[in-house]
Amino acid sequence: MSPASPVSARDHGELVARLDARFRGPLMVFFLRRRFTRAEAEDLTQEVFVRMLGRDDAPESTDVYIFQVAANLLRDRARRRLTRKTEDHASLDAPTELTAHGMENHPALVEDRSPERVLLAQESLAEAMRALGELGERTRHIYVLHRLEKMRHKEIAALLGLSVSAVEKHIIRAVAHLAERCGKP
């Protein structure tokens, strides 16, 4: 119970090291997919580890729970934000238990971008459109189909008569070009 005692501090250290070795990568990916910046994803990953310390599960069950802890962490953040924004909209409250998979269907809860980032995004629109215009026609359209129309690589490939890897190369080229021209986070 007392994290101040040397023994449990060492235990905690070992547990974090173990979690880190095993789950840092997957958790980073989990958060990065949800539009967080790398720095935010690192903080959130750390927070998941801290939350795991508070649980006394058997170590084997960690695999099962860790993404749920991650999803709940996002849910709590989103709920805090919603509470701040609209205290009287109880109906917006998240269900009590959301699995990581369930989060996908709750964009309002997953999106946790600060107003500053939204503002930055506003300013970057013109820049992004300019950069997009500099790409070849096919590359540009493929980027738009994938990122905005949310079409899968396979679907785009089938439509345009290209291989999946060719479609992926177009997407990579477009993303790299946009990153070069306007990707300052």
Binding site: L32, S124, A128, L132, R147, L148, C182, G183, P185
Partner: peptide, 8 residues
């Protein structure tokens, strides 16, 4: 890259 990924 992450910023460019969903910039639009």
């Amino acid at each position: 890259t992450q910023a460019a990924w969903d910039v639009l």
